[in-house]
């Protein structure tokens, strides 16, 4: 019983970590157009987050700084 209980919460945490990591990898590796598509899709499906998503879209569409360098290992 104890092992099964442990197994359930372990699987729950693992599932959250895997989903979070997949979104993070997608976000980091994808280009601007894919990120904007992702935000548009989230905008449609997650109405409570629309304010935040709008701000994020605005930030992405403003002139770039050294954003590409943030993912480099120099």
């Amino acid at each position: 019983m104890m092992t099964m209980h442990h197994d359930v919460w372990q699987q729950l945490i693992v599932a959250l970590l895997v989903i979070g990591s997949s979104v993070y990898v997608f976000w980091t590796v994808s280009g601007l157009s894919w990120r904007l598509r992702f935000i548009r899709a989230a905008h449609r499906t997650l109405p409570p987050l629309r304010g935040r998503l709008d701000r994020l879209r605005h930030r992405l569409e403003s002139p770039p700084g050294c954003s590409a360098c943030r993912s480099c290992s120099k």
């Binding site: 895997v18 979070g20 990591s21 997949s22 990898v25 590796v29 993912s71 290992s73 120099k74």
Partner: peptide
Amino acid sequence: ERARLFLGRAGGIILALMVVLWF
């Protein structure tokens, strides 16, 4: 700066990719 960037990458994209790869 170099160490921070390297460790930041290890704790960011590398860690995330390791989780996905483990799955």
